Amino acid sequence: MAPQFNLHDFELERVLNDDPQTHSVTLLGRQRIASETQQDPGPQAAIVRIEKTALPKFSDGLVVKTQVIESTDIYTWLFGWLQPSDSSPDLKINAIYPATETHIRKYSKQSVHIVRETPELYESIVKPYIEAFPSSRTQWVTDILTGTSEAEKVLFRSPPSSPDGFLILPDMKWDTVTLGSLYLVALALSSEVKCLRDVKKRHLPMLKAIRRETRRIVEERFGLESTQLRLFVHYQPSYYHFHVHIVNANYLGLQNMAAGQAHLLDDIISLLEVDSSPEGVIFQRMTLTYSLGENHGLFAPMMAAQAGLEDSEAGARPTAVA
């Protein structure tokens, strides 16, 4: 088992990223393992992401102190301090511990570039990259699927006899309280589908069931209509086990909903339905365009391959007639 993280033992090393838009900061630090049953391996790297939670519902007495910053004509700017509340925490804290160098690169501030991935580049670059991932990288997913962890949070689980089963539970990004930032995730029970490239027409029953059960659960449990939901799949995903993100449609500004990374589940279903090929493998035949951060493991080989795509296009252009 991984050692338990304790924020009070966390020693800050440096800031990996800060985002004023999401009111969050990601920190890198160290924590020494204190255990009587195992040898102390020394300080271990830890990543801590701290974000402001959504504002609680306004009521009299919520703001206990104000300070005027400036006032001009009819406009006034103030700082404000909220009443401490046991039911409305001020921060949500996510920790990765022990954190690997891969985690550190992933959460560090980085520039992104737009790349195009042809089916050939998927086979030669991306697929070997995915297949090289050790199973330990998705052990936390396996723990959820087997009920070893977070079993009490599961909102839906397919019957054991279901050939394309899945479960739905709150995503770690959600505070499980604020409906305006509702964030769930549907995880496929099978590890057969790693990413969008693996999705085929025969997976339509699973995709439609995820859409159907999501709508039912969210309406029954949270009172939201189906039209208030945004369901999407990432490519490239943050981990290679097929999953669908389920977010309140009014929750805007998330970077992971940007065009080129987020593919709406409805569009995925529609593309599979109109695919006339016998195998139903449209996502294996498409060229996919998406953003890659400079710290991503695919960045260097995919950027090197882009020049070849441009050269082939240049050679295919018709010669202008004088």
Rank of each mutant, 00 (worst) to 15 (best):
R157A: 00
E273L: 03
H103A: 07
L169D: 04
D311P: 05
S59F: 03
E131P: 02
S191C: 06
E313P: 10
E36T: 06
M172S: 14
I93H: 10
L189H: 07
L224P: 03
M1N: 15
L254H: 02
L204F: 04
K127S: 14
L272S: 11
Q39F: 02
S135F: 01
D311H: 12
L182K: 01
D171L: 10
T146V: 12
L204H: 09
R137W: 01
E131A: 15
Y290A: 05
H8V: 09
P163T: 12
S181P: 00
S59N: 09
L184F: 05
Q306F: 09
S111N: 14
I96G: 12
S270D: 07
Q83P: 08
S276W: 02
E225W: 04
L169H: 02
Q139K: 10
H245N: 03
I47N: 07
I168E: 13
E273V: 13
R30T: 05
T214K: 06
I47R: 09
K200Y: 03
Q21C: 07
Q38W: 01
S191L: 11
S149N: 13
E150Y: 03
E273G: 09
E117L: 01
G29T: 03
T178Q: 02
D175C: 00
K201P: 05
F222S: 09
E219R: 12
L252E: 07
L27Q: 03
F283V: 13
Y97D: 06
R202N: 00
L121Q: 15
A95S: 15
V247S: 02
L271K: 09
Y107A: 06
K201G: 03
V112L: 08
H113D: 13
E123L: 14
L169N: 02
G253T: 00
F58H: 10
L254T: 04
F242N: 12
E123A: 15
S24E: 13
S88M: 00
A46F: 02
E131K: 13
A300P: 08
E310N: 13
L224T: 01
T178A: 11
L145K: 11
E131G: 11
E51C: 04
K194W: 12
A307C: 12
D18Y: 05
S158A: 08
Y75W: 15
H8E: 15
S24C: 01
V274K: 12
K65V: 03
P301I: 09
R116G: 04
Y235G: 07
Y235A: 10
P159I: 03
Q139N: 05
L91Q: 02
E213Y: 02
Y239S: 10
N256V: 10
R216V: 03
L272P: 12
A186L: 01
F10C: 11
Y183H: 15
I47S: 06
T37Q: 09
T22P: 00
D267V: 11
I96T: 15
G80E: 07
W174H: 12
E131I: 14
V115H: 08
F58V: 10
R105F: 06
S312E: 14
T37H: 09
P43M: 02
